[in-house]
């Protein structure tokens, strides 16, 4: 395994600094639209992260983990927000992969995002790992 790694490294060097810049394209109109939509929605979602109603899942989405923390009259609306947010998140990962010419990166981008969403979540928010919810 080690030698394989070395060869890979070698090849990376030969291949030139293709990825050496280390920047992903995230400024396409589609990505901006998704980001803006998610930013606008965040104001509505934030109190529900704080209350523990919503949590960040290990697959880069959000989930209604405890609807009891939401007033009864709002639960229906929160379900809709979760569905919309997850639709946008799925599209975001797909768009970033596509914008960089590598649709096959979608799963990697998703898992990178999943880690970062969770890593940067505020304390008190619920995050999922290994199917279990825990409070940051």
């Amino acid at each position: 395994m080690k030698t394989v790694h070395r060869i890979v490294l070698l090849c990376v060097m030969y291949a030139g600094a293709v990825w050496a810049q280390g920047n992903l394209e995230i400024n396409t109109p589609a990505i901006s639209q998704l980001r803006d939509a998610m930013q606008a929605r965040h104001a509505q979602l934030a109190p529900h992260y704080a209350s523990g109603a919503l949590g960040l899942t290990a697959d880069g989405r959000i989930a209604l983990r405890d609807a009891n923390a939401v007033p009864l009259a709002q639960r229906q609306a929160v379900q809709g927000l979760v569905a919309q947010e997850n639709g946008d998140r799925d599209a975001l990962y797909r768009e970033i992969a596509r914008a960089n010419g590598h649709p096959e990166w979608e799963a990697d981008i998703r898992s990178t995002f999943a880690q970062r969403w969770i890593g940067r979540a505020q304390s008190g928010w619920y995050v999922q790992s290994g199917g279990q919810w825990s409070r940051k």
Partner: peptide
């Protein structure tokens, strides 16, 4: 490019 993806993720987050 895991590091670049992390950077991109952070910027969007």
């Amino acid at each position: 490019p895991a590091a670049a993806a992390e950077k991109a993720a952070d910027r969007i987050i």
